[in-house]
Structures are given as C-alpha cells and as structure tokens.
Amino acid sequence: MSAPDTNLETQKSRHRGPLGGMAIILTFAGILLLALLVWTFFNGLEPGGTDAQIDGRTGAAVESE
C-alpha cells in the first residue's frame, strides 16, 4: 500500500540531511580506501620478515640488508 497523502517537496526537505550525511560518509570511506591503497603500494615493495631471503634466480639464500 502506498501513502494516501504524499508531498514530494516535504519529503525532499526531510531527507536532505540524511542523504547529505551518507554522501559525507561515502566520501570519507573513499579517502580511506585511497590511503590504504597508497600505503599498501609503497610498503609492499620491500621484502621483509626474515634475515635471509631466497634469490629467485639461483635459489641460494641471500642475507638481507
């Protein structure tokens, strides 16, 4: 069933605040996602975790710096 008395202009004004809040949250989430991608890109280039790394070409253990 639909509402018997709908006023679109009143509904627009009532929903302006929540829709604006959702837009702000989505913008903030997009900025956080972009920051995560940049951070992952710059920190993911360095091998780490052990003192010796395996050289992919020869298979020999190489001391990390």
Rank of each mutant, 00 (worst) to 15 (best):
F42D: 06
Q53H: 14
L37T: 12
G30H: 00
E63P: 15
F42E: 13
R16W: 07
K12H: 05
A3M: 10
D5P: 01
L19W: 03
V38E: 02
G21K: 11
A29N: 04
E46F: 15
R16Y: 10
N7W: 02
N7S: 09
G48Y: 01
S13P: 07
A61N: 11
R14N: 08
F28I: 15
T58Y: 01
G30P: 00
E9G: 04
H15M: 13
V62W: 01
L26M: 11
E46M: 09
A23R: 06
P18K: 01
A3L: 15
T6M: 10
W39Y: 12
A23L: 03
Q53E: 13
D5Y: 13
Q11T: 11
D51N: 04
T58N: 00
G30E: 01
T50W: 03
E9R: 15
I25P: 01
P18D: 01
L32N: 02
G49Q: 00
E65V: 09
R16V: 03
R57Q: 15
A61H: 05
T27C: 14
L33G: 13
A23T: 04
T40G: 04
P47A: 05
S64V: 14
V38N: 04
H15L: 12
V38F: 03
E46D: 10
F41W: 14
A61P: 03
L45W: 14
